[in-house]
Amino acid sequence: MLMRPLVALKTAITAAFTLFGVAVVTFFLLRIVPGNPIAMMIAPGASEADIARLKADYGLDRSIPVQFWIWLKNAVRGDFGTSISTHRNVLGLIAERLPATIELTLLALVIALALGIGAAVLSMLSRRRWPGSVVDNVNGLLLAVPDFVWALAFVLLFGVAFPILPISGRVDPRLSYDFATGFTLLESILRLRFDIAANVLSHMLMPALALALPLAAVILRVLKAALETETGQDYAVLARIRGMSRLRIVVQEALRNAMIPTLALTGVQFTFMFGGTVIVERIFGYPGIGNLAIDAIVNRDLPLIQGLILTFGLIFIVINLLVEASFALLNPRLRHG
C-alpha cells in the first residue's frame, strides 16, 4: 500500500516529461514545416512594414527558442495562447470542443466492444458452422476498410438512400437548450431531456459506427484467438468434462481471462480512434477537436495546433493509465502485487 503514492508520483512525473517532450518537438516542428500563418494573412497591398507588424503581433518575429520560452512560461500558468484564426483562448476553445469528441469516441468504444465481444463469442460457439464462417469473413472486410470509407458509405446509405439519420452536426440546429457543460448527451440524459438525448444520439450514430467498426474487428480477432487459447486450458477442459455447457465455459470462465490481452490492445486502438476522429468528424461536420484540428492546420493556426497536439498527447497518456489500472482489476495477480 505504501508503494501506491510513489507509483502515482512516478507516473505523474513520467507523464509530465512525455508531455514536455511532445510540446518541444511539436513547437519546433511546426515552425520548421512549410506554410506560415503570416503568409496566409498578408493583404494584397501590404508593405514590408505591414508584414513585420503582423509577425510582431503574433510573436513570430523572435527566434524559435525565445518563442518557445515565452510559450512555456505562459503554458505553465495555464495560458496556451490565443488562436490566430478564432481570436479565442486556446485552452477555452479546446475545453469547449473536447466533450463532443469524448462522447463520440466513448459511444464508438461501447459499440466496438459490444460488436467485437458479441461476434467473438458467437464465432467461438459456432466454430466450423456457417455463423462462424460469416463472422470470420465479415471481420476480414471490417479490418480492410478504414473508418473514413465507412463514414462516406454511411452518408450515402443512411443519409441519402435510406434517410433515417442526420448527416452532419451534433444536434438539430433548430433545437434550443442551455446546458452547463459540453457533454450534451450525458447532460441531456441527467436533465431528463430525452428529446435532446435522442437528437444528439441520432447525430452521433453514423460517425460512432464508422469509428467503431475497425476497432470491433480488431477486438473480435484478438478476443477470438485468446478465447481459443483459454478454452484449451486445463480448467476449461475440466469444466467440459464435468458437463458445463460450451456457452458457460466461454462466457463465465474463459472470457474474463481472454479479456486481458484484448483490453491491452483495445486501449492502444482506442487512442488511434481519437486520431480517426480528425477525418470522421470532418465528414460528418461534427464539432469536436478532430474537426477543429483540420481548421487549425488549414489556417496554420500554430497556437491552436500546439494545444491540440498536447491534448491528443494527454488523452493518450490518460487512456494508457486507465488501461493499466483496468489490468489490475481484471488480473488478481497484478492486484495483489
Binding site: 450515402l156 434517410p163 448527416i167 452532419s168 433548430r174 465528414i283 461536420g285
Partner: peptide, 22 residues
Amino acid sequence: ETVIFKFVTDATSRVAEVESGS
C-alpha cells in the same frame, strides 16, 4: 424568419445534405 448555416466542409456530405432534405 430563420436562416441556418450548417458548416459541412466535405463536398460529398453537402450533396447528401440536400439530397436527403436535411
